[in-house]
Design a protein around this nucleic acid. Structure first.
Lengths: 231, 231
DNA sequence: CGCCTAAAGTGTATGTTTAACACTTAAACA
DNA sequence: TGTTTAAGTGTTAAACATACACTTTAGGCG
């Protein structure tokens, strides 16, 4: 192969992945105990090194799968962190991603192996390097996007109730919402299919189950519709 | 120095910079003729390689300065492009930035040296590699942000008229706006200082000059204000 | 078996924001 | 002094966001 670019200019590149989950109460973050120097033993988000023959996106998918066993989940690039001193061991440029997963789906085995745990976002321990900056950026991104794109559903099971959906938005925005206005707005978008089944785990009366319908969303988009939730 | 990470995993890293300007008519893009293999001679956005001892942001600032002579302009990271095949010469991860500059301020000498020219965004030639993808993403970002943050002013001279400002928004969104509604909205935010001077370059009557006041914006922000222009 | 409890579900009125729309004013120049 | 050209100005109707309280359901328990 012809080499066009200077050899000496190669840099160390990493990907790091902020992983969000929702346990029907709180928005949570999956953190691991770092098992690599420097800063071994500290809390950290999951990371890895992209191989020469894989894209950044692929590396992020691989990292996420390593920790959770999950593929085909919502995963989006966040930002590239390139301060010289961000990793005290050595200059490493890190491309951060964030993922939204259904919290009951992850592989408990793998998580235990990595000494990982779920942390409430209101209660995040000290993190290694600039990982806290990444997490804060991921949260801001999630908060911006969840208003205007139907990504919240990625954090819920396939079927869910309206009170569950509302609790999710309340957890994301740390803000109580009006039940009537919330339901009105969500249902008026016409993106949910109502099932003929109730979930009774959180009340005697039970709440109707719904399912997000991506086809309806795509069709609405094509007709100039904009998703929007007021928070 | 102790080395913590594997040596063989280093990658080639670049920064590329989408540069926007506004000539009171059209939103424009500063493109160069690439003078490096592969694809020498093709249109391209300006790029460079971050040094080991400089941050990504710094590298982007340096690249922008190299082409325009400008420092202290609006510059924001866009996205990290990491497909394996994006550069046919060799695997290069590129972190793209975009800049908003005042089009009369750039260094004509430097631009000539780089064989660069301004292209209307409605009339962009074929670009090298994935640069068109970067440009499109920069445009979407600009369009999203210019609605909700006062970054449009970065493309205008220090003092400007309301018709000029409106023409800028019309160029960004490729959409005609209602003069009365636009002026009402802009002025109601109370972020502009009206000067006692008119600009007569585009009409006999002349249009009053205004200046964006960043202090007023900061104060408003602190009081819960949100910038917003309807387009 | 009926009463209590706890969460689910429902509608209206008011205020705010957006969108649509046409004429007057100013000043240069013929 | 009339003509031309862009700058500047308000009002109305519709859509949307916000605030707010009672009824329904069904399980559990006395």
């Amino acid at each position: 192969m012809t080499r066009f670019y200077p050899l000496e200019d190669r840099q160390l590149l990493a990907v790091d992945c902020v992983i969000f989950g929702f346990d029907n109460q709180d928005l949570k973050l999956l953190l691991i105990r770092r098992n690599m120097e420097p800063a071994s033993g500290m809390w950290s988000i999951m990371g890895g090194f992209p191989r020469h023959d894989e894209s950044l996106d692929n590396a992020a998918v691989r990292v996420l799968k390593q920790l959770t066993g999950l593929v085909d989940v919502y995963l989006e690039q966040l930002y590239a962190y390139g301060n010289v001193e961000r990793d005290p061991g050595e200059r490493v440029v890190s491309v951060a991603y964030y993922a939204l997963i259904r919290i009951e789906d992850y592989d408990k085995h793998l998580v235990r192996e990595h000494d990982a745990h779920w942390s409430r976002i209101s209660d995040i321990p000290e993190l290694v390097f600039d990982h806290r900056v990444m997490v804060d950026k991921a949260l801001r991104r999630l908060r911006r996007k969840a208003r205007i794109q139907p990504i919240g559903f990625e954090l819920l099971p396939d079927t869910f109730t309206l009170p569950q959906l509302q609790a999710l938005y309340e957890a994301i925005y740390q803000k109580e919402l009006d039940k009537r206005n919330f339901r009105k707005k969500i249902l008026s978008m016409g993106l949910l299919d109502k099932l003929e089944e109730k979930d009774k785990t959180s009340s005697k009366k039970g709440a109707w189950l719904y399912r997000f319908n991506p086809e309806k969303y795509q069709e609405a988009l094509a007709n100039g519709f904009y998703f929007s939730v007021d928070v």
